[in-house]
Design a protein around this nucleic acid. Sequence first.
DNA 1: CGCTGTATTGATGCAAGTCAAGGTAAGTGG
DNA 2: CCACTTACCTTGACTTGCATCAATACAGCG
Lengths: 221, 221
Amino acid sequence: MRTFEAGNTILAEAEDSVFLGIVMSGILRVQRTMADGRQQIVGLLLPADFFGRVFERTSGVAVEAATDVTLCCFERHAFERLLSRSPELEHQMFLAVLRELDAARDWMLLLGSQTIPERVASFFLILHRRTTVIEPDMPSRKRRLSVHVPISRHDMAAYLGTTVETISRVIQDMSRRGIIEIHSPQHFGILDEKRLVRCSGREELSIGHRCLADEPHMAVG
Amino acid sequence: MRTFEAGNTILAEAEDSVFLGIVMSGILRVQRTMADGRQQIVGLLLPADFFGRVFERTSGVAVEAATDVTLCCFERHAFERLLSRSPELEHQMFLAVLRELDAARDWMLLLGSQTIPERVASFFLILHRRTTVIEPDMPSRKRRLSVHVPISRHDMAAYLGTTVETISRVIQDMSRRGIIEIHSPQHFGILDEKRLVRCSGREELSIGHRCLADEPHMAVG
DNA sequence: CGCTGTATTGATGCAAGTCAAGGTAAGTGG
DNA sequence: CCACTTACCTTGACTTGCATCAATACAGCG
């Protein structure tokens, strides 16, 4: 069980990863960096999500703490031996990676074909969906209408493939149009869910059905 | 063993997939479509690649023939039973999906952080790398300098998250600048590989090391 | 031949990036 | 308690990369 402060690197891009594990609290970002410094976040890991690369010394992605985090860590080789001994466990890992692949492809659609406002709306809806599953102890009225964005504008931009300025403008605009309300930079209320869905460019189906929001994720970082 | 003509749908987005298999010849595109018709290709499958979704009735992606194709098909449930009986085979599938996840994330970086000219250059380099592995019978001099783009401009645009017009302009421009030469709309020569790599915005490392080009892929479509 | 689908080229407009300047809030030290 | 810093977010003015719209070129083919 280890803790990291926001901003710390858990696994570097080229580094040999010696451990892997599960997020207990906080948020991890899985990201790739280009030679000139441009960064793209390719996954966010919430509590209960798995991080780390099995069966490979290194993956091309870095895993960093987006907030203060506590992780439950295992030694990689020991975990791999466990997997070899337990086909059932490996099967479950397999299914998780398949889901993660779906999520990655969903995100490719977002990055390749959606406008920035659509991406922001999608992000809100996905976050809303995931976090309401994770925190089921809130009063249901409140829960249905509020979104907590657990990361900075900078990370949001790196995740959505845009810039902080554009993110800011889009959010303010959605608020001005009465689609959402801004309680604080990280807390929002959804005033018009129907319209938010329409803004996202997605159908009820692909948001509600199978997407990033559905299950705990594998990082395989 | 089945054949499909270019443009035919092998597996639709919402359809129950009853079979899966391996590409023998031709190219498959794995794609997602939005409500308003925008499409994003999330993967290309070359000969020897695997397509189809295991352990899931349907995935959110469609698999279509980008060219005339011949496929070696298996009945899905039979294949899944085979996997359950053979942990070793399932392990290999697992590794393949992990590689595919890496490739998807690589593509997320491309779609989220690279300019269109960079994407085109990256695509050329990746294609060059993959196809020279697949066709090792060419004279090595010729092989090192030529690229065959096996898909239409339309598919290229859908893969790179842009439009046919922009693709066309970028290619003509690279040719005018002496980086590549155009033999036919689908055949190109690489005149200045160093410069092409620089255009791609990637380092030698991430193109040569681990990326889309490395291994046969899983479609899991 | 004209027809059809695919690729190129040109002109124009807009979405979003860039650059630069505030604004706000939390933390620090005198 | 108040200046000062630092980090983050917002806002404005300007620029530009790329999409869009529209036209032309270039096959292959009935």
